[in-house]
Design a protein around this nucleic acid. Structure first.
Lengths: 125, 125
DNA sequence: TTAATATATGAGCAATTGTTCATATGAGCA
DNA sequence: TGCTCATATGAACAATTGCTCATATATTAA
């Protein structure tokens, strides 16, 4: 039962079929990866982490993270497009805050994962 | 109170100070971003999604996702290094399965986020 | 030992991404 | 109107990343 993608002979066709039927739609998995990609950057993680504590303007965030206003503004755009933050204008100043209740859960689960005690460093076989 | 990173004059020093104290350590936020980076790829999301349903060998996953064995093996290494999957050898065949109870929560919260109804497409101002 | 097979891995390349720099926008004020 | 300030944005460049291809490793069988 070998095919074009894998030279192996041991392919468990029944399992593949069952898994294929149970898996979410391709499009949803794509969107999910896109969402996690947004969380996958130190600067954005820091911004989100800061916004957990308080609403902040662009300048505050730049100062807090010791980064340029431009860099922060670019990253806020990414967060906005992922609908993770919302903004509020007050004159020239734009205040950003979190726009999702799931973020906290995702973050906390992520933190729990990285804080788990490691029994051993990974080594194959 | 302007500084080197932001030309703005409106910096809310008190908020910055409070947030700075409450935020997790820099190193933890870095690790967190590294973890989410692992989730931020369609192939890896698909692999994880498949392993939710059943333990699978490398060849099965390659067949399921219509990708080469090499590509899958490379990605499994990334997942292993992030301690998200574990493996079990049975002769020449290596079976992979999930190695973390937090993954499901993270995934489900992520799915809930992307499935949220959008009132409007984002537009600034 | 030799051959075959399942998986792992290193090098290289194309595509993506985060930052910087320069500049645009837009709001408040003189 | 014209000026200043807070933020947004486009282009460009360096760094990272995911795949392919070739090959190495490890296990089983003859």
């Amino acid at each position: 039962m070998s095919d074009e993608f894998c030279s192996c002979d041991i392919v468990h066709e029944n399992i593949i079929e069952i898994v294929k039927q149970k898996m979410p739609q391709e499009e949803k998995l794509y969107d999910l990866a896109e969402l996690f990609k947004v969380f996958g950057d130190t600067t954005r993680v820091k911004i989100i982490s800061a916004l957990f504590e308080a609403e902040m303007c662009v300048c505050d965030i730049a100062e807090l993270l010791s980064m340029t206003q431009s860099a922060i503004s670019h990253q806020l755009r990414v967060l906005r497009q992922a609908r993770l933050v919302k903004h509020r204008k007050e004159g020239k100043v734009v205040f950003y805050s979190l726009d999702d209740e799931h973020i906290k859960t995702i973050f906390n689960q992520g933190l729990e994962h990285i804080l788990e005690p490691r029994g051993y460093e990974y080594a194959i076989s």
